[in-house]
Nucleic acid binder design. Structure first.
Lengths: 238, 238
DNA sequence: CGCGGTATTGACACTATTCAACATCAGTGG
DNA sequence: CCACTGATGTTGAATAGTGTCAATACCGCG
């Protein structure tokens, strides 16, 4: 009767049993996808909001010159594509990075939920504002930080978000990213990402495996990146 | 009884006379600042939301190495600093670029408005989502586009947003930005901005004046930048 | 009138990109 | 089970694009 999305909302807004139940009902239709598979393919439009329940996905857009910009990593409880409700269509797609489960809410249902339960509406707004904060941080990261720190920063953020707020933080954290994914998120070339990762490996902060990057020393990485998670509230585990 | 903020909200949500009036009442306490002056200074925190009513301002943050990243331009009707309502504090400041008028709503009042008028709440969410779309575009711009196009793109966006949706688009548009401002928004160095602007001037797309940049050929600039305003709904003039 | 921020220009340094070649691995179909 | 294939990872060399530094010019403001 509770899932990652409900927990996420509860991390920003107190909910009644009834609200929890209504949310759980609306999100109980779960779908699965394998790694590297589309969740919202390029070209698909206006199909309602998506909610990631488990696994890691990303939101991206293909630019005019063919390059891909990843703008968000989406973990358990993350919601996206709400902007279609507003009539905006910015042409983003969603793809799974690791095996994912997700659910889907069409706009009328979501609007009805918000209408009936104002706290849910407020909660959604809160989540959007938090997301905006993360996006600003990405902008500063991509714009102003040199490659090594930029990559370290992004990986720090991702580790931070993937860990539950109430659990003790493990020092190791596996990120299901290829070097190409990292390149598209940090706006660097894959070749340079490879060199940067080499340097982080020399510092014993990460180790590399095919198709995934393992952060060996979370604390060390965060302090190297000068990362602080102040701007990201996290959900408690359920 | 109507101001830029009310019109902005009405561009995304139909409002009753009563709602309009309530909004106008809440935002009638207008303050003025001269160009280059702080609206929300560095260090000030948690003082409620700000709404720009006229003029142009920007939102920025000073990074660890002292560089400044501008993350938003704020024009008439734009709202910011809502995230304090959610408890997030990301350390951003706001400064006027041109002479500005603005107003201020403390969080309890804003929360009360949303509570009483659900449509206002929905409208605020919509505005936040639109803003997020703009931010994503900035990310792609800073991350992937070469300097000349990056600068052209940003100026295109700004021209586009500063023009009312219903007015015929003038071909010329003055932007109250120094080259340093442009540098901090595009994540380029001031020196390079100067060179880029030189190139755009050669193309007769812009002309330069001290402390302001004049776009001479809006259409030409947008097409050079491959800019499309799809992702930005605009407010009608009041 | 002088001061301080802004704009302009040139020389140079450096970071990251591109290109190319090759290695490695997972999955596929024979 | 193996060979093939395509995506990913690795490395080096050459290059392009921006940044940095420095010197100078400009202009609004006190």
């Amino acid at each position: 009767m509770s899932n990652a999305f409900v927990r996420r909302l509860e991390s920003v807004e107190r909910l009644t049993k009834i609200e929890r139940q209504a949310l759980a009902d609306a999100t109980k239709n779960v779908q699965k996808v394998g790694p590297r598979r589309p969740i919202l393919g390029e070209g698909q439009r206006n199909v309602g909001a998506h909610i990631i329940l488990s696994g890691l996905a990303c939101r991206y857009r293909i630019l005019e010159d063919g390059s891909r910009q990843i703008t968000d990593f989406l973990g358990p409880g993350d919601l996206c594509e709400c902007e279609h409700m507003v009539g905006a269509d910015s042409g983003y797609s969603i793809a799974a990075l690791s095996p994912c489960t997700y659910t889907h809410i069409d706009h009328p249902s979501l609007a009805a939920l918000m209408e009936k339960y104002p706290r849910i509406g407020r909660g959604l707004w809160s989540l959007t504002l938090i997301n905006e904060g993360v996006l600003r941080e990405w902008l500063a990261n991509v714009g102003r930080r040199p490659a090594v720190r930029r990559v370290a920063y992004l990986m720090s953020e991702l580790c931070f978000r993937l860990q539950n707020a109430d659990a003790p933080r493990p020092s190791s954290c596996a990120l299901p990213l290829t070097q190409i994914d990292l390149a598209d998120a940090t706006a660097l070339s894959p070749v340079h990402i490879n060199r940067v990762l080499g340097r982080l490996r020399e510092k014993r902060l990460v180790s590399l495996q095919r198709r995934s990057i393992i952060v060996k020393d979370t604390e060390g990485l965060m302090s190297f990146a000068e990362f602080s998670g102040n701007y990201i509230p996290r959900s408690p585990a359920g």
